[in-house]
C-alpha cells in the first residue's frame, strides 16, 4: 500500500503548478497588455503624488502675475500657467494627490460598509430581506444625484464628497459580496466546518470572506475609477473641492472660462482625469479576467 501511495502523490505533485495563487494571478495580469499600461499609469501617478513636493519648482498656490496664461512648453512651466500665473504641472501633480486620497478613502469606506452588509445579508437569511431592501432603496437613486443630495444636506467640501461617494459605493459592494456569500455558503466545506464546531463568526470571517476576495478586488479597482471621476464631476459642478484647491474637476471648471484663449487650462486636467480613470478601469478588467478561474488565457 505504501508504494501505491507514493505513486499517487508523485503524480499529483507533478501535475500541479508550483505557483501560489497571487503569483499566478499577477502572471495572468501581466499577459494583458492594456492592464500593464494601466498599471504603469497608476504606478507613475502614485510616485508623482508621493514625491510631489520634490518634483515641482513652484507651489500649487504660488501666483505669478507676470506669467499668466503661459502655453504648454513655456520656459520654466512646461505645462504652462493659468490665469493667476500658477504652474499647471504643480497643480496637476498635487491634484493627483487629492484624487488618489479621495479614491482610496471612498473605496475603503464603501468596502467596509458594503462587505459588512453583504456578509450579513448573504449569511443570515433573516437579515437578508431587510438589508437588501435598504440597498435597493439606495440603488433607486442615480448615483450622482444621491451624492448631490448628501452634499446638499452636509454642505460643500471635499470631506463631504468623500462621505457622499462612499455611501453611494456601499450598495454595489453589498450586492456583490452577498452574491458570493450565497454561493460560497452552499459549499460543502462550510457544512464541514460547522461539523467540527466552528461558530458563525469564525465561518463567516475566516472562511467565507477570503473566498469572496476576487470579486471584491475587482469591484474596488473599478470603483476607484468611478470615485475619482465622480469627485471631479462634483468639484466641476462646484459641490466638491473649492478653488483654489488644485482639484482636477475644479481646475476644468475654472479653465473653461478661458477655453478660447488658454485651452490647456481645461484640457490638461481633463486628460489627467481621463488617463487615471482609463488606467483603473483596464486594470480592473484585467484583474477580473485574471481572477476568474473559468477564463483560461
Amino acid at each position: 500500500m505504501s508504494t501505491d501511495l507514493a505513486i499517487e502523490t508523485n503524480s499529483s505533485n507533478s501535475e500541479k503548478k508550483k505557483d501560489g495563487f497571487i503569483v499566478e494571478t499577477v502572471k495572468k495580469l501581466v499577459q494583458n497588455k492594456l492592464a500593464v499600461i494601466g498599471l504603469v499609469i497608476i504606478f507613475i501617478q502614485v510616485v508623482l503624488a508621493i514625491s510631489a513636493p520634490f518634483i515641482v519648482s513652484y507651489g500649487p498656490y504660488e501666483q505669478d502675475p507676470t506669467a499668466t496664461y503661459l502655453g504648454v512648453g513655456s520656459e520654466g512651466h512646461f505645462l504652462g500657467t493659468d490665469n493667476y500665473g500658477r504652474d499647471m504641472w504643480s497643480r496637476i501633480v498635487y491634484g493627483s494627490r487629492i484624487s488618489l486620497i479621495v479614491g482610496v478613502s471612498t473605496v475603503a469606506i464603501g468596502l467596509l460598509g458594503g462587505i459588512t452588509l453583504g456578509l450579513l445579508a448573504g449569511y443570515f437569511k433573516k437579515l437578508d430581506a431587510i438589508i437588501m431592501r435598504i440597498v435597493d432603496l439606495l440603488f433607486a437613486f442615480p448615483g450622482i444625484l444621491l451624492a448631490m443630495l448628501i452634499i446638499a444636506m452636509l454642505g460643500t467640501s471635499l470631506v463631504n464628497v468623500v462621505i457622499a461617494i462612499s455611501i453611494w459605493s456601499i450598495p454595489g459592494c453589498a450586492r456583490i459580496v452577498r452574491g458570493s456569500v450565497l454561493s460560497v455558503k452552499k459549499q460543502e466545506y462550510v457544512m464541514a466546518l460547522r461539523s467540527v464546531g466552528a461558530g458563525n463568526t469564525r465561518i463567516l470571517l475566516k472562511h467565507i470572506l477570503p473566498n469572496c476576495t476576487a470579486p471584491i478586488i475587482v469591484f474596488a479597482t473599478t470603483r476607484m475609477a468611478t470615485a475619482i471621476l465622480s469627485t471631479a464631476s462634483l468639484s466641476y459642478l462646484g459641490l466638491g473641492a473649492q478653488p483654489p484647491t488644485p482639484e482636477w474637476g475644479a481646475m476644468i471648471a475654472a479653465g473653461q472660462n478661458f477655453m478660447w484663449d488658454a485651452p490647456h487650462m481645461a484640457v490638461i486636467p481633463g486628460v489627467a482625469i481621463m488617463l487615471t480613470v482609463f488606467a483603473f478601469n483596464v486594470v480592473g478588467d484585467g484583474l477580473r479576467d485574471a481572477l476568474d478561474p473559468n477564463m483560461n488565457v
Partner: peptide, 17 residues
C-alpha cells in the same frame, strides 16, 4: 460537534476550503 461527534462528508473535492 467536532469534539464528541464528528462527520466525514461525501465529496472530498468540495469539503475542504
Amino acid at each position: 460537534r467536532g469534539n464528541e461527534i464528528s462527520m466525514i462528508f461525501q465529496e472530498p473535492m468540495t469539503a475542504l476550503n
